[in-house]
Design a protein around this nucleic acid. Structure first.
Length: 286
DNA sequence: GTCGGAATAT
DNA sequence: GATATTCCGA
């Protein structure tokens, strides 16, 4: 196998949704915690309201009453400094793509949470986030290798329908060959190239902070937009069949004009308890 | 003490 | 089922 182009790595960045997708959003600077603590609803610009950016560990000495919806189970009253939780991360296809790229370009060998996280350089993303996702991704890879050991990384070529149904997310980004064929020990190849885009620069911090939330917002908007447009038969095995058993019951009649999705954004990044996460199908984005 | 990975919990 | 958190070994 010598199909490796010497500069394949110079292309990967181009595929990433960096500037265009990450920049244009101007979001509220009010963190969810703040909003909750003060019972702010952020009423204006229902179209522009922004979900919680990853709450920075800034000073928040007094958020004593958040949404005690389910949070109040244990430490409801005597653990003020301890109650900071990040919103649940939703792995959008874009995010996953970035993840896959990072893993691919690191090589399965060096693809460990911390490194991946650094390569992705997505603000708000933690090592735990990546580790957790990586764990699942590995299982997916394993299953793939097991089921079709002779199938190119071109994508979900010879997969059983189960895969598409089960791993909608993973199916949205093609698995690079390197990952399917780790290659025998000895043929390890890797670049001393360490980008380390750990955003520590202050002036970039702001924009960086937006990136995660920004992507996720875009994701949802896009989903809503594409909602009524048929995928063109690409995934015609009826992916409308089943979805998360939750609040999202759009029934069989998806309106071209969804009702006010004020809740939509909140749903995407729901707190650890009130999980109304709606997981959607892959985008035809890549 | 940090990190990675699997197990377990939400 | 997806993601988070915990546990334990390097």
């Amino acid at each position: 196998m010598k199909e490796e182009e010497p500069n394949w790595f110079s292309r990967w960045e181009e595929e990433l949704p960096s500037l265009d997708e990450l920049m244009p959003l101007s979001q509220t600077l009010i963190t969810p915690d703040l909003a909750f603590a003060f019972d702010i609803r952020i009423p204006n610009t229902p179209q522009d309201v922004q979900p919680p950016p990853p709450p920075p560990p800034s000073s928040q000495p007094h958020s004593t009453e958040f949404d005690s919806t389910e949070l109040g189970s244990a430490t409801a009253g005597d653990e003020p400094a301890r109650a900071l939780k990040r919103p649940r991360l939703v792995w959008t296809p874009q995010l996953h793509k970035r993840f896959v790229d990072a893993v691919a370009h690191l090589g399965i060998k060096n693809a460990v949470p911390k490194t991946i996280m650094q390569l992705m350089s997505v603000d708000g993303l933690t090592r735990e986030n990546v580790a957790s996702h990586l764990q699942k991704y590995r299982l997916y890879l394993k299953r793939m290798q097991g089921l079709s050991t002779g199938n190119g990384g071109g994508g979900a070529a010879g997969l059983s329908p189960t895969d598409a149904a089960t791993d909608r997310l993973f199916a949205s980004s093609p698995v690079p060959r390197q990952l399917l064929f780790p290659g025998p020990p000895g043929s390890d190849h890797f670049l001393p190239f360490v980008p380390v885009a750990t955003l520590q620069h202050h002036h970039h911090q702001q924009m960086a902070a937006a990136s995660l939330a920004a992507q996720q917002q875009q994701f949802h908007q896009r989903q809503m937009g594409h909602f009524v447009s048929p995928p063109g038969g690409q995934f015609d095995h009826g992916f409308f069949s089943r979805r998360a058993s939750g609040v999202n019951r759009m029934g069989s009649a998806m309106p071209a004009q969804p009702p006010a999705y004020v809740e939509d954004l909140e749903s995407a990044i729901a707190g650890g308890g009130g999980r109304k996460v709606l997981t959607l199908f892959p985008t035809g984005d890549d």
